[in-house]
Design a protein around this nucleic acid. Structure first.
Lengths: 204, 204, 204, 204
DNA sequence: AATGAATGAGACTTCATTCAT
DNA sequence: TATGAATGAAGTCTCATTCAT
């Protein structure tokens, strides 16, 4: 029994290592060439595996990238998970500002891979779908936060929380892509404006 | 002399016709197959011209599509051109709401081609660049409108008009893509929420 | 000693079971996908064994199929074994007709597997060779029958029994493939015509 | 006008030449390697054209081969076209014998390509279908010949001409394949036996 | 101005088979 | 006896673009 488990584990370990090697090689290749120009050939060459090996672990290029992408998205989910239970408008404003800043900073930090993500979204329908799932996950969380504020009379109760959440996330997302594509960034100003407009609007 | 001019003019007319035929064929082909799957073959077959002919008038597939896209964008520019000189916050709110509605309605109206535009943006860097130009044009106009409101003490003067314009356009754009991809649409609710958030924010 | 034998026997039993499981799985897979599209992967998955296991018992896909095919052919051999000692032309006619009918009916009964056999013959030289062996076995038997008839002055003695046997079997075989590929079948008419032509020819 | 026609013709000539070069190269390649092992690569290399060029003229390997095959089949059709209007059984016998001989001799003559045809039939469903069409064409012609004999009271009228034609062609076809695959051949004996059995049957 | 024959890089994928455990 | 991770050869096919006419 023990013998068999050990045997299995050794094999599985090997398999996992190979898989990992492929994943790491992929990251390098994607960062170097972007999504479209990256090829399975390059990846397996870098990972030093046989051609078929890549196909044992992944169906195709899109799937490999998806795994890489999911890994990055985990970090974003962490930001989204921030507890949000403000008592006052001021507290809400601060919390939101904080979260926006974290969100945008993370994107800037992960700029390289995010650039590829952007490209992949446009090129691969499967990746685009995945991104929409990610987006919905964020929007869902924001919707809940808005509902909390509405229940506590902090926010206008006549607004549809989901629609507001969408608008809000969309603005954030677009600024994120903008920041990802620029070298110099003025995160602070963006954070400030986004938060102000969100909470208090433009007009006096 | 006269004879030659007449001859030239006839040629030019022919050339224009061919060009037009290519453009019309392209539209059909792009709408039918989307951007990526559309091929020059299909286009010239439909336009009943030779391979080389297409290359006399356009550099490549992207350029053909760009021309089609510009044509549609003209209609959007019309919407952007609406005069904006509100006297009160209420007037501003109404005007903005009106413009957002026109903008989104137009997108829904042109849904088919806009879907292809979306695809093309993701796939072709040249088209993406073009789209960014279009976007900047809108943002510039919005920036001016905001400045007008700020000068007239209708809007907060401590906000960077360009940044606000960006955030505002981004939210609009994203809802536009959303509407383009859905069959059923709730434009009115979206318009209402966008405008309210823009002018007065979410929080009380 | 006894102990070891018992142990071995258990192993052998297991081995036989595994082999059997593989064979049964193969049949399903071949019937479902045909010869070319069937893969070892599918077979071992269905048999719940490992990749290597299949190769312990069979050299390759062709060999697995050959075993399946042999199993079916046994039934045909049974038909061929029918005793053939007619006293009169009429008796010969009846016996032949009977045998043809059995032969074709069996093929129709085993239509599914026979379809795959047909495909495999075309694709795999090894299987084709096997089929030729099977064919020769039939022809040999028919040759003997013809010789019997010739010795008893029932059949023309100036004909080469082997050549006649070939012609006769070929016609039968081809009708068999035809029947295997059709849903509706008119076996009776075919049997009648084959037998008549064989025994008495077409011309008056 | 003349100018244009000349222009067109030059181009078409060129195209036809290329096509012809591909076809000739194909023949060599198919004869050398058989159907399965032949590759488009080998063909274009021999024809000294670019990769895509082959795909301008033919959809795939099967289609190229089909054209080659059709070319050979034309010769067979010539044999099939022999007028058949016998007055007596003897005359019928002679004519049939003659035609069978021509048919088999042609196959032996074209042995090399026919071997590939045999292989291709087994491997490619499209080629198999084509072969079935060819077969039906022969059978149709034979059916008509039988009907002629029946109308002239030379042949048994109670037999279904189509069924008889099938049986007859099948026997011929199978011997043909047999001859194609053997080096030494005893055509004469085969012709004799086939014809005798067909016209007068085996039994006395 | 119009044509259309020719090009060719190269991405993708599959699956039977091996061999170390 | 059983396993299953790893292999890698090899062939197909596409389509934007060119350039001689």
């Amino acid at each position: 029994m023990k013998h068999e488990i050990a045997k299995l584990t050794t094999r599985q370990k090997q398999a996992l290592e190979t898989r990992q090697r492929l994943l790491e090689a992929s990251l390098t290749v994607f960062l170097e060439n972007g999504f479209q120009k990256a090829t399975i050939s390059q990846i397996i060459k870098k990972a030093k595996t046989g051609y078929g090996t890549a196909y044992v672990y992944f169906q195709n290029k899109d799937e490999i990238f998806m795994e890489l992408m999911e890994h990055v998205m985990e970090k974003f989910y962490e930001v989204a998970k921030c507890p949000f239970e403000p008592k006052t408008k001021k507290e809400a404003y601060d919390m939101i500002q904080h979260q926006v800043r974290l969100f945008l900073k993370l994107a800037v930090q992960e700029r390289k891979i995010m650039k590829v993500v952007k490209e992949a979204i446009g090129v691969s329908p499967i990746i685009e779908k995945k991104w929409q799932e990610i987006r919905e996950r964020f929007i869902k969380r924001i919707t809940e936060d808005i509902q909390y504020s509405q229940q506590n009379k902090l926010a206008k109760t006549d607004l549809n929380s989901n629609l507001v959440a969408r608008a809000w996330f969309y603005a954030n997302e677009m600024f994120m892509w903008e920041l990802v594509n620029q070298e110099e960034s003025s995160i602070d100003e963006i954070v400030l404006h986004l938060t102000t407009m969100y909470t208090s609007g433009l007009y006096v």
